[in-house]
Design a protein around this nucleic acid. Structure first.
Lengths: 342, 342
DNA sequence: CGTTAGCACTCTAAGCAGTAGAGTGCCAAC
DNA sequence: GTTGGCACTCTACTGCTTAGAGTGCTAACG
């Protein structure tokens, strides 16, 4: 499809989208011609609209209604027509202040970030925690809980902790447990979890020191312990924001979306891919290839702290204020990166 | 209000509620008289219905409709009329199997429990983690993350771990940090977190050993670290189950309910109170004194493992199968207690 | 040749009347 | 105390009409 647009087509598409985003009503030729003074009559606008429809950028819900943008239309708008908005000083201030919580684990900061995004955008705020795989192991701790239960604590640089319990046959002496932990630390700390996962068998094979049973269990469980997919990595906030959006009045649509939210893994996949993007990314509707994301868009940006990367963003109906959301998410991601790499 | 019911009134109320729970439609006199053979005519039933209405147990949505139970009606039904249902062997089996996950932290087990409840009941499954306050401290760990950051790990018997970061002025030697941790363990382990919170100042006052700065920060942060209200104690699963319930077709109602879900603290409060109940508890509508719970009921039961107690249950519209849910929640709570106190 | 006014046409949303059906309350009779 | 009968009420559904919005097309205009 040829997408060379005339100057008029460009302005009219932009105006139409702007208006539709605000009103959620199909936009007719009269509104465009009168409310925004383009110096042309509704009839002329009609011709242009007809052209835009032929190009697949807008469509009519029914014959006697105005036009609404298609996904392709939004795409073009976001790529070419958008004029980026500057955040007001007060908004910047708000974001910065809200994210400056002291003494918090990274999980808390990310949860807070989702919340801030949700509040400022009235959309769904989402974050995922850093790719655990690339995180560097700081320390392994073994704690005897009961005679037969040992807790393994894996602490990663930047404040993430993961724990599991392993079940041992008999009580292990404190000194011996400490020695085992020392072995693990000596052999593994400073490595990324990914590396550890791939090479742990080799690294611990010839080890004579430490408790062999604990070491064996550690190796058996390492996948559960070190893998990135387990744990609470996705934070979502602002579900009710979504409810008030006009497009979710339809209970069928709403249900679909909430299912998406509850199943989590598709969302996690989506956000994880975005982790590798270095700039703000807009994913419109079907582009995400996720059933529940039909009719929805995501504005996302990766953040970074050392070797750790994750994604923050917002999700809402395709009819969203892209310019505003993009600058908001962009700025938030930057602030977050700063805070995390302090 | 006098609530002595005649035999007929009792059966008719029970039949009406049973039928309404299944159909979600107001129940008329004809249905009651014919579908359930009570040996009386619809006219007689009408008289009885009129009496029940006067007693506030049932009501009419509008003049020409059948009757539906009021909250008082449900209450009486649950207290007096319910015949308890036995779970089928296969359901018991399902629950037991689903909860027997090995090597899991308590958080995982509870999440799993909510999920099981949600699936088996088609309602919202909820759990809260044990009252942290009564949990007994097992070990405190201090881990140096960077020059100025120390992670405090508080491990409690039964597998809950909580961590925070504290920011110190300058690097602390490993040996000194270990010594500090030892002091904390010596003074505090074996005590309940509640005790610690109340008496920590006193217990550490005259302490000469350990790093004074870390000790000071620990004391300042102890509220954040030891308090029960922080952290992810509430697990909810099955949000979409709720969506398919007829009473939530009304978007206003739905919105209210999801707000409740997202705000969490009212739910936490509700479930926390139930922690002290030793038997299965049914909370109907306004009894919960929570805005968003209007039109909803909760069936809950506390579980127990050592000194630790928490609550599991389901939440759904007041029109629910109380008998079935009660036995299901009851059994689940028992299995959970067993598993946790292994 | 692009732009415009005019007009017939289409479709939706809203209001209105009429009807069927469900269910009640009451009364008189059993 | 129970029952059948009957008038009454209210909802939900149907079909009909109308107003309004918006389009597409055509012919005229600068």
């Amino acid at each position: 499809m040829q997408l060379d647009l005339s100057e008029r087509e460009r302005t009219i598409l932009a105006v139409l989208i702007d208006h539709y985003v605000r009103t959620a009503e199909p936009v007719g030729s009269r509104v465009i011609a009168t409310k925004y003074d383009l110096g042309v009559s509704p009839a002329t606008v009609r011709n242009t609209l007809s052209d835009l429809e032929e190009k697949g950028l807008i469509e009519q819900p029914h014959t006697s209604a105005g036009r609404i943008p298609t996904e392709t239309g939004y795409r073009l708008y976001v790529d070419k027509l958008l004029k980026s908005e500057r955040l007001s000083a007060s908004e910047r201030e708000k974001i910065k202040r809200a994210l400056s919580i002291d003494y918090s684990a990274i999980e808390d900061i990310l949860e807070q970030t989702s919340r801030v995004l949700a509040r400022l955008t009235s959309q769904l705020g989402v974050t995922i925690t850093p790719k655990f795989d690339q995180a560097v192991l700081n320390k392994v701790d073994l704690v005897q809980l009961t005679d037969t239960r040992v807790m393994v604590i894996v602490a990663v640089r930047s404040g993430i902790v993961r724990t599991i319990l392993i079940e041992v046959d008999s009580n292990i002496e404190v000194e011996r447990l400490r020695q085992t932990a020392d072995v693990l630390n000596e052999k593994l700390s400073g490595l990324s979890l990914g590396e550890i996962r791939r090479t742990i068998a080799e690294r611990l094979r010839a080890e004579e020191r430490g408790d062999p049973q604990v070491l064996k269990l550690f190796m058996e469980q390492h996948d559960h312990l070190l893998s990135e997919s387990s744990g609470d990595e996705l934070h979502t906030e602002g579900t009710m924001n979504i409810l008030s959006q006009k497009e979710f009045q339809n209970p069928e649509k709403l249900r679909e979306f909430l299912t998406l939210l509850e199943e989590r893994h598709s969302l996690i996949d989506l956000l994880k891919i975005k982790t590798f993007a270095n700039d703000i990314t807009v994913t419109i509707g079907a582009e995400a290839n996720i059933e529940g994301m039909k009719g929805c868009s995501a504005v996302t940006r990766s953040y970074q702290a050392g070797q750790i990367r994750g994604t923050v963003g917002v999700i809402g109906p395709t009819r969203m204020e892209y310019a505003k959301l993009m600058s908001l998410v962009d700025y938030t991601a930057k602030v977050l990166s700063e805070i995390l790499s302090r």
